[in-house]
Amino acid sequence: MRRKRSGILPTTSPNSSRTGTGSPSGLLRWPVLPIVAGLLLSGCIQMAKPETFFELTPDSVKHKALQSRMFEMTDEKELLSASAAVLQDLGFQVEESEVDAGVLRAAKERSARSVWQEIAQGLVFVLGLFGQKAVIMPVDLHQQIGATLVTRHAENDTSRYTVRILFHRKVWKGDGNDGNTYIPPGQQSMEIIYDAEIYRQFFAKLSKSLFLEAQQI
């Protein structure tokens, strides 16, 4: 009975379970449990509610106001090319453009390493050593900042155009280690940027390049 209890506690170090002649269970149990748990949990992701994917949230209007400005001009092409030039100034590469639909997509790649995350990684590693486990927390390595810009004329009036830009960020994590389990690199996360200052700066630059005042919508 006592032996069984000691087998359940996650204090057995990887080396002791490999060399220990009496308990091959340590070797079997720990990789199997995460695999089974992973398989069970992968079912939970499917349980997200698809009907909410196309539902407007109370924040939608606020975000639209943040991301849009109106310009009094008639030439949509000029508006798009000025926007492309501003994005280039900001270090973006234009990846996709469709003048007839008023769409522009640009991206820039940057390092996502941060000192704080590396300090946290070090701390977790040291804490893990007390538990006799080699824990290396994956940290952010690389990021891609994307911008999608759309122009659209306003309410039957081709003399005014709305520019809406949406900035987002994709982050890729490096590899890590959790005791016996290796965490492969490439774990991806994404967020839409809602920082008003970033949008304000972009539209300030765009107004400057068009010699026009941007109007809040």
Partner: peptide, 12 residues
């Protein structure tokens, strides 16, 4: 865009 999608490709 209102729904928070990122436009990947457009062909008018």
């Amino acid at each position: 865009q209102d729904l928070g999608f990122i436009i990947e490709r457009a062909n008018a």
